[in-house]
Each structure stands twice: as structure tokens, then as C-alpha cells.
Amino acid sequence: MLFFSGKGGVGKSTVTAAMALLAAQQGKRVLVVDVDAKGNLTDLFEHEPVGFKPVEVHPGVHVMTMHTEESLQEYLRLNLRVPVLGRIGPLARALDFVATAAPGVKEILTVGKVCWEVRESIEGRADWDVVLVDAAATGHIVAQLGAPEAIRDLVSVGPVRAQTEWMSDLMHDPAVTALNVVTTPEEMPVNETIELVGRVRSELQVPLGAVIVNRVLPELFTHADEETFEAMRDPAAVNRLVDALGGGPDVARGTTAVLDAARMAVSLRRTRAGHLAELRRAVDLPTLFLPYLFVREHGLRVTRMVAEALGEELGL
């Protein structure tokens, strides 16, 4: 059971999808749970959106979208044998209300469903080798993963309390569960990652996995190469270069553009390297690096590229 969190916009879904693809390529049967349902996870497999029931969107990869009301229905059906058909409307609204007020109710329906799929697989009633969760963003993940304990503190008796215990056991087992944090080498995502790792350690017993740094720009030059590059930007050198490339105002404009672009790439990389250094200083988890992809569009092709890079980082 692998959870993926991270600041919004860092590519959490892409990394989750790539991990799913990689696991499927290794022959694993994968369930991906889209919890932070923005509905674009299936886009990454070029598949239409899916609902609560898992759908195979790619060979070996099933995806389901979390839906707390359906999760509750399933729970009631399986655990309490409550005939809910037809009555779920008002009940769901009431639940929505209670869930707003009480810590962990919505979250327990989310992690509860995930844990249930994992337990069913461990006990041989379901087929998943790996369950990957595109989980809540950094601001909400601690509440999500701490839901079983929150519920246990709140509810003194009843079946729900008993249920939280096996969930906690699963989620705290380092052989089963890991929380991975996706980030980019930028200021806010790095700060949030550092903060999240600290909070997880102090507030949860969920084991931490890896930090996955997405969109890392390539290092263009070695130190000596960069000196050579800087020398090229001297006006005399630029003029020489323009002449060597055919001369004229168009070539002059083009040469300036090309040199400026490289200068920008070097500076961007340097700013980001500073944030990465900060990350490594503050967080001692295994860190995987995924390259910035210079591509035109998203979709399965990009997911494959990210999966390949992930595979290389993991030594597969």
C-alpha cells in the first residue's frame, strides 16, 4: 500500500501513474486509487474517467475513483448488512453533515476502503499485488492517514471503533505501507515536503518511503564548460559566432536567442539546485530524481517516459 502526497501541481498523479505502469511492467497486478479526485488520473493512461468500481485502464493497471458515499454504502452492505438501497439519499446528506463536523469520518471512508482492498488481497480474496494511492495534498494528508486514530479517540464504542484497529495495524506496518512525498525543486513544494515529513514523524506512525523529486532540469555544463559558455557571451565572441553561422541580422537575433536560452537554463537549474540542497539537508529519506520532460503534450507516452526514468532510479 503506497500513498503519494505532495503539494498541488507537482505531478503527484503523474508519478503515481508512472509507478503503476512500472509495477505492471514487472508483472504485478496494480490497483490505483484516485483519492484527490481531480479526474485526470485516467487521462495519463488515455482512458476515459472511471468511477468507484475499478476498471482496467491499461494492461495490469486498474483505476478506481474514491467516492465516500459509495464507500459508505459498501461498508454498510458488507459489515452491518443494512439494507440501504433507496434510503441512501437522506442518509448520505446526513452523513455529509456528520462528516463535516467530526474529524476523520470522511477520511476513514477513504483509507478504510483502501485498507480493505489491501487486506482482502493479503488474505487471498482480492488480486492486487500493489495498491497505489494518489492521496491528499500536503495540507490534508496527515488528517487522512491519521483517520483511524482520530476515530478511535472520538468514538468510544461500536463496530467502527473495532474496525479502526486492524486499519491502524496495516497502516503502521513497514512491510505493507509507505507514504511517499512527491515534490519539485522549487521553494514552496520543498518547504511543504520538509514540513510534511516532520509532521508525519511526530503525529503519525505511518512509515515514510521516498521523496520523489519531479521535473529536475538537466545540468547543462560542468564547471569548466560553463566558463567556456560565459566567454562565448562576450560581444566579440558573439560577433565571431554570428559571422561563422552565416552573418546578417537574422542570424544575429537567432544567436542571441540561443545564448540567452542557455543562460536562462543555467540560472533556473542553479536556483533549483539550492532548493534541492535544502531538501537534502532537512530530509534524510531516500530520494529519487525524475527529469523535467521537454515534451509537447501529456498522456500515455509521457507516463511511459516518467515510468522509465523511475525504473532507472530504482535500478530496475
Binding site: 547543462l220 559558455f229 562565448m232 562576450d234 565572441a237 565571431r240 559566432l241 537554463a265
Partner: peptide, 29 residues
């Protein structure tokens, strides 16, 4: 790269390095 080497600037004096840097610059663009 050859044209730049002729300028006699120390940092641009190695033809291979200068060519490699130019190639990288083009690719990055």
C-alpha cells in the same frame, strides 16, 4: 567552434570543449 578558438580567448581555446558547449547550447534551446 573553430571560429571562436581563433579569437585567442583562453576559455575558448580548446576546440573540443568549445564545440561541445555549442552543441549543448543548441540542444537546450
Amino acid at each position: 567552434a573553430g571560429a571562436l578558438v581563433e579569437l585567442g580567448i583562453p576559455a575558448l581555446s580548446e576546440p573540443d570543449r568549445t564545440a561541445r558547449v555549442l552543441h549543448t547550447v543548441g540542444e537546450s534551446f
